[in-house]
Every structure is written in C-alpha cells, then in structure tokens.
C-alpha cells in the first residue's frame, strides 16, 4: 500500500478492492489512523472501533497488521507527499442538489464539530439576476497558496503532490492563515475538539489532521490519508449525485466518486468549460468547477442575503 507509483489502472483497481474492505471498516487506512483493538474473542475474531465510532467484528486471519508510523515518521512523510502525484478535484455544479452528504462524511472523518466545515456547500448567486446554485467549497489547494506564505512556523505547507497540509503539532494558533485565505477554507479549534476523549492517546495522523487539537488550525486535506491507501477523499465517495471527480493531473485521469467512472481530466474540463474560483487573485486553485448549466432540479435554497454575493 505504500507504493509511491500507481498506474492509472492500479489506482482504479486498488480503489475497487479497498471499497470492498471499507464496508467492513477494517482497511489498513482505518487501522493506521485511529482504530483501537478492543478485545480478541476465542474464535479468532477481533473487535475493532472504526473512526465513525461503531464496533465491528472481523476474523483475525483477514487482517494484515498495519504499521502505525511513529509521530515523526508520519509528520515527515506527510510533509513530503506522494511522489509523482498531482491531485486535482473537479466539482460539477450542474449536479449538486445540496445533499450535503459530503459535509457529513467529512466531519466524521476529520473529527469536526457541526459548525466546522472542511467542505461547505454554499448557496451562491453571482449577480442580481443570475440563477442561484449550490457550490461545494473545499480547500482549493492553491498552487500559489496565500496561507502557507504567511505562516510563521511552517505549520501549514504545500507538498509536492499539490496538497496544502497542516501540522497541528506545530501550529501556534496565530490565525494569520485564516486572514490570508480568500476562500474561507480554514477553521480553528476554538474549544476542545469534538469527541476529544474518544481520540485521547491516538497518535496524530498529519494526513487526516486527527486528532484535532484545541487552539490549532484545521482545513480540507483532500483526505490525504485515504489517498495514500489508494482511496478517494471522504467527500468524493460520499456524494450520491456524481458531483465530484478526483484524480491525478499527471496521469490526466479523474474518477467520479459516485459512478466510479474514470475519464480524461483535460477533456472533462475542456468540454465543460471548467473554471476556477476567483482566478483573478492569482492563487491558482487545484479545484475546478463545471458551470451550473442544464440543471434538471430546482434550486430550493433561500435567496441570498444582500451584499453577500460571491
């Protein structure tokens, strides 16, 4: 699972496999991040606590021991990123019906309180008479990130594979990065994080930013821990409406989180007139949007408060 290089095929294949296992909640990713062995029963079954908080029982023989990287190893590899990759996300606004399953999955994965969003589905209206639409907004993982520039301690940084990550073991909580981010992508742990007791003693996984820590920053990480296991980010797989495409720009392939269909990234954004958010700021986002055209469902949100059109 640690292979740094994946062909397009093996990426898809491992995706299928891990999806199967994910149902059991015992894929290595879960193990490495934060499951605890509860007990071993006589028949060789093992009970595990998944990150979602449910107990599952699996046959011990099915398990491969996952290596728990030490904190420093984890931080080191988390800083390097995955070699040869260049992650991108494409969000199809014509499909988004505000199901918000992405938000829920994300909050579960990253130990977030209900008001903390790594991804937030916004109701948008660009100008007075234009049509309103829903816009999921994760971190843009900019290639010219304003947030990492201002960090005084290098606690937030850009990896070679394009992901902007946070080291909450180092963050001093100055919140300069929040002020610098034009996409409001960052959240802060103003209090003890959600379920702090449950995560006590769990080794920090920098690629999931779990456990969260009081007084430090958090934000979308493209589920870097899942990517390492060959899986798609939580929000992408959680969407029931085929909104998200995710993949590797180097391989020119993106996979749809709902249909699992894989297509050419460049063709997808070319054919659909993709754009990036506030490109005039020069931040060079890695998240691309397909315009909200030809929608077959009504917009049911409230109309936008005045003066808040983005």
């Amino acid at each position: 699972m640690e292979q740094n290089y994946n062909t397009r095929r093996s990426f898809l294949k491992s995706l299928g496999v891990t999806l199967g296992v994910a149902g059991l909640g015992v894929s290595s990713g879960v193990l490495t991040s934060c499951s605890k062995v509860s007990s071993v029963s006589p028949e060789g079954k093992i009970r595990l606590l998944t990150p979602g908080g449910t107990l599952v029982e699996v046959d011990a023989s099915q398990l491969t021991p996952a290596e728990m990287p030490s904190l420093t190893d984890n931080q080191k590899r988390g800083r390097l990123g995955m070699e040869g990759k260049s992650w991108v996300m494409v969000i199809d606004l014509s499909k988004c019906r505000n199901a918000r399953q992405c938000m829920a999955a994300c909050q579960n994965h990253h130990q977030l309180r209900p008001e903390q969003h790594h991804i937030n589905v916004l109701q948008m209206q660009d100008a007075e008479h234009t049509a309103p639409y829903y816009m999921p907004k994760p971190c843009m993982h900019c290639d010219n990130p304003p947030c990492t520039k201002v960090c005084p301690v290098n606690a937030t940084f850009k990896r070679a594979d394009g992901i902007v990550l946070i080291d909450n073991e180092r963050c001093i909580g100055c919140r300069f990065c929040i002020a610098a981010c034009p996409y409001s992508a960052r959240v802060f742990n103003w209090f003890e994080p959600r379920d702090a007791e449950k995560y006590e003693g769990v080794t920090y996984n920098i690629e999931a930013n779990v456990p969260q820590k009081k007084g430090t920053i958090s934000k979308c990480l493209f589920s870097a821990d899942l990517l390492r296991d060959g899986k798609l980010p939580s929000c992408v797989s959680a969407c029931p409406n085929s909104v998200y495409w995710f993949g590797d720009r180097n391989e020119d392939a993106v996979t749809n989180g709902t249909t699992k269909e894989t297509v050419s990234f460049s063709k997808l954004i070319r054919d659909n007139g993709a754009y990036t958010l506030m490109e005039e700021l020069g931040t060079k986002p890695r998240v691309y949007y397909l315009p909200p055209k030809n929608r077959t469902f009504p917009f049911e949100g409230e109309l936008i408060e005045k003066g808040h059109q983005g």
Binding site: K149, V153, A155, R170, C171, I172, G173, F176, G215, T216
Partner: peptide, 17 residues
C-alpha cells in the same frame, strides 16, 4: 491559540512570514 508553543517561532521560524 497556543501560547505554550511560543518557542516554535524560534525553532521553526519562517522568515517569509
């Protein structure tokens, strides 16, 4: 947020900030 980590500014200070 973390005044207890003030020393990080000296340990890991980034002069670009």
């Amino acid at each position: 947020g973390r005044p207890d980590r003030l020393q990080n500014v000296f340990l890991h200070g980034r002069f670009a900030s």
